[in-house]
């Protein structure tokens, strides 16, 4: 019996032994949105950066609000998000420095092919939202403080409507983009989505693009543009962040070469993100 106990102990100990860290390269913690991670863009871009600077970029994929909150507590080194107002506030509070434009894509309104609220052919998102509210057709909101939710809220405001989560047709989920799309698909609901995540999941959804066209160029509503920015966490406020590596990351992400690679990342022949850095525009 003693031998058996010793065996159990040995197994547990060996498991513990394996837990010792083995990685030598420096770590960089990137807090970002589910759209950049779930679409596969970061998997496509990052190996180049990791090889160049012998580092390991660790991605925390959450909503924009949570990504900025992680940065504001000094628990990430750099954030890549899509909410210009919140990014500006993040810099103004002293939590972030060196904010740069990175890229953009656009939001689209998706919903059931049968389009019960008749939003097809709307000129603007606000008009389409008004029709959804009028028809009390089911609408799924991210509800997680993400950049997408901020955009959605702005559109409801432009339409002069305050959607009520207790009304029975407006669902505030508190979930990521993928979850929300799956929910909308199951429930036959409308939702506002970033084009990238929608395209990468299109085959798994019974949802059609009802406003926004087949490509970004065909999107009729300029209000649906979705700009991404990168911000380093301020070392003056959070002394433990890896600021030097974060700055190298920002420089690399906005460089003409990486921007070119962003354009090369396509799904079904069309880019999911379009380069937008100062260096790219000045090339």
């Amino acid at each position: 019996m003693t031998r058996r106990l010793a065996l159990v102990l040995a197994v547990v100990l060996s498991l513990a032994g394996c837990a010792a860290p083995t990685s030598a390269p420096q770590k960089l913690i990137l807090a970002t949105t589910t759209s950049t991670a779930d679409s596969g863009l970061l998997d496509f871009l990052l190996p180049d950066f990791e090889a160049k600077y012998n580092c390991d970029v660790q991605i925390i994929a959450v909503g924009t609000g949570q990504a900025l909150a992680i940065g504001a507590k000094g628990d990430a080194d750099v954030v890549l998000v899509h909410d210009p107002d919140k990014e500006a506030a993040f810099v103004a509070s002293g939590d972030g420095v060196n904010r740069q434009h990175v890229m953009y894509n656009d939001f689209i309104l998706v919903g059931p092919v049968s389009d019960p609220a008749g939003v097809r052919g709307s000129a603007t998102a606000a008009e389409a939202f008004a029709r959804i509210a009028q028809a009390k057709a089911p609408f799924a909101s991210r509800g997680d403080g993400s950049g997408t939710e901020t955009k959605e809220k702005a559109i409801w405001q432009a339409a002069g409507i305050v959607p009520d989560p207790r009304s029975g047709w407006y669902f505030s989920l508190g979930q990521g983009m993928g979850d929300t799309l799956l929910f909308a698909s199951e429930k036959g609901a409308y939702t506002l989505a970033d084009r990238g995540t929608y395209l990468s999941m299109r085959d798994k959804l019974s949802l059609a693009i009802l406003l926004g066209g087949d490509t970004l160029d065909q999107n009729p509503d300029p209000a649906l543009r979705n700009p991404y920015g990168v911000v380093a966490v301020n070392p003056a406020k959070h002394p433990n962040v890896r600021y030097d590596l974060a700055m190298k990351f920002i420089e690399w992400l906005t460089s003409v070469e990486t921007q070119q690679r962003i354009l090369q990342f396509t799904v079904g022949g069309q880019p999911l993100f379009y380069p937008d850095s100062a260096a790219w525009k000045a090339r």
Partner: peptide
């Protein structure tokens, strides 16, 4: 843990992520 690929991703968080991705 933050569900970081190759570092802090475990069975349960991977199941959540793959379900989220469809």
């Amino acid at each position: 843990g933050g569900n970081i690929e190759g570092s802090t991703r475990v069975l349960t968080t991977a199941i959540v992520l793959e379900t989220r991705r469809g």
